[in-house]
């Protein structure tokens, strides 16, 4: 999820899930690994994309995506700039704004606040 996994980690994850499933004492422990095991079975290519190409096609893994402002949609209202908790957004009023990726913590506040849906996730 943070882009540091290695290809062998997928096998490790599978082994871990199987071992927990077999050795846990309670029903919760025996079933908790199931979501991991079934996604590994049916969506393995997405796992491989994450690990091998650092790509998250759902745009969910923060470490693998950047938040960028689409200049075509941005009207320069400044709401995102005012709401950004780390001051990563700059721009003149009525001009397209910009996010400084070095400062951005990818919290997603700007995307939630933007009235024009101008903030998009972009895979790295």
């Amino acid at each position: 999820m943070n882009g540091k996994a290695e290809p062998d980690d997928l096998n490790k994850l599978e082994r871990l899930a199987n071992n927990i499933k077999k050795s846990a004492i309670c029903g919760l422990g025996q079933t908790a690994p199931n979501p991991v095991l079934s996604t590994l079975k049916y969506f393995r290519e997405e796992y491989v994309e994450h690990v091998s190409y650092n790509k998250c096609r759902a745009g969910y893994c923060r470490a693998l995506c950047n938040l960028v402002i689409n200049p075509e949609k941005c009207r320069g209202c400044g709401i995102c700039k005012r709401n950004c908790p780390v001051g990563a957004i700059s721009g003149e009023v009525k001009m397209p704004h910009e996010i400084n990726q070095k400062i951005c913590i990818k919290c997603g506040t700007c995307a939630d606040k933007c009235p024009f849906h101008a903030i998009e996730k972009q895979t790295i």
């Binding site: 499933k21 077999k22 050795s23 846990a24 004492i25 025996q30």
Partner: peptide, 16 residues
Amino acid sequence: GDCRMCIVEVEGRKGF
């Protein structure tokens, strides 16, 4: 039995 270190395999039984 909370550490799970002493688990064994019993034939015909699901899980350890």
